[in-house]
């Protein structure tokens, strides 16, 4: 149950941090409020969000999240991708709305844990 197997199972595109896809996935947290993530997300979680500005990199790095999953067709600026690579932050793109992304990830996590 690592970022790579999640990415492959759910068809995410990898935008940054290709070298760190072997990180374990401990769970997931979905929020667009940065302080909510700072307060409630746990290390090793995947963070589903529609925020794609540079500050998500600092949040993911400080909280030691395993990956960020950007939803919809949100365009992530090269500047953000560069910062993410520097800070060893994995950014994936789901290409789907937040609800579908969260639902699919929830199912994958449940199956992966029970299977």
């Amino acid at each position: 149950m690592n970022v790579k197997s999640m990415k492959e199972a759910l068809g995410y595109e990898c935008l940054s941090g290709e070298s760190w896809l072997d990180r374990p996935v401990e769970g997931a947290y979905q929020s667009d409020l940065l302080s909510d993530v700072m307060g409630k997300a746990q290390a090793g979680m995947v963070w589903i969000t529609s925020q794609v500005h540079k500050n998500i990199v600092a949040v993911a790095s400080l909280k030691e999240l395993s990956a960020i999953v950007a939803v919809n067709e949100r365009k992530v600026d090269p500047e953000v991708i560069e910062a993410a690579n520097e800070e060893e932050v994995v950014i994936l793109a789901s290409g789907k709305p937040a609800f579908e992304t969260g639902g699919e990830l929830y199912c994958w996590l449940s199956e992966a844990k029970n299977g």
């Binding site: 302080s35 909510d36 700072m38 307060g39 500005h53």
Partner: peptide
Amino acid sequence: MGFGAGMGLPN
């Protein structure tokens, strides 16, 4: 930008 949730100081 996702700030201003009123959780900074409580955090």
